[in-house]
Computed example of a mutant assay.
Amino acid sequence: MLQHPKVKGPSVGLLGFSKGGDLCLSMASFLKGITATVVINACVANTIAPLRYKDMIIPHLSSDPGKYTITESGFFNLVDIWNNPLEEPNQESLIPLEKAQGPFLFIVGMDDHNWKSEFYAHVASERLQVHGKDRPQIICYPGTGHCIDPPYFPLCRASVHEVLGQPIFYGGESKAHSRAQVDAWQQIQTFFHKHLNGEKSVKPSKL
Rank of each mutant, 00 (worst) to 15 (best):
L2F: 12
H4V: 00
K6I: 00
V7F: 12
K8V: 13
K8W: 03
G9I: 06
L14V: 11
L15P: 06
L23Y: 13
L23H: 12
C24Y: 07
C24G: 09
M27C: 10
S29K: 03
F30R: 06
F30Q: 02
F30D: 03
G33W: 13
T37L: 05
V39F: 04
N41H: 05
V44M: 10
K54H: 13
I57Q: 15
I57W: 04
H60G: 00
D64N: 14
P65M: 12
K67C: 08
Y68L: 04
T71K: 07
E72P: 03
E72C: 02
F75T: 06
L78V: 10
V79E: 11
N84L: 12
N84E: 15
N84I: 12
P85D: 04
L86T: 12
L86D: 15
S93Q: 09
I95T: 09
P96Q: 09
L97K: 02
L97I: 04
L97G: 02
A100R: 09
A100M: 09
P103V: 13
F104D: 07
L105C: 10
V108Q: 05
D111M: 12
K116N: 13
E118D: 12
F119P: 00
A121K: 05
A124L: 02
S125M: 11
R127N: 05
R127Y: 03
Q129D: 01
V130S: 14
D134A: 13
D134P: 07
P136T: 10
Q137I: 08
C140V: 10
C147E: 15
I148D: 06
D149G: 05
D149W: 08
P151G: 08
F153L: 08
A158L: 00
I168C: 08
G172Q: 11
S174E: 15
K175R: 04
A176Y: 12
A180M: 07
W185L: 00
Q186N: 12
Q186I: 02
Q187F: 05
K194L: 01
K194R: 11
H195A: 01
S201Y: 14
S201V: 11
V202E: 09
P204M: 09
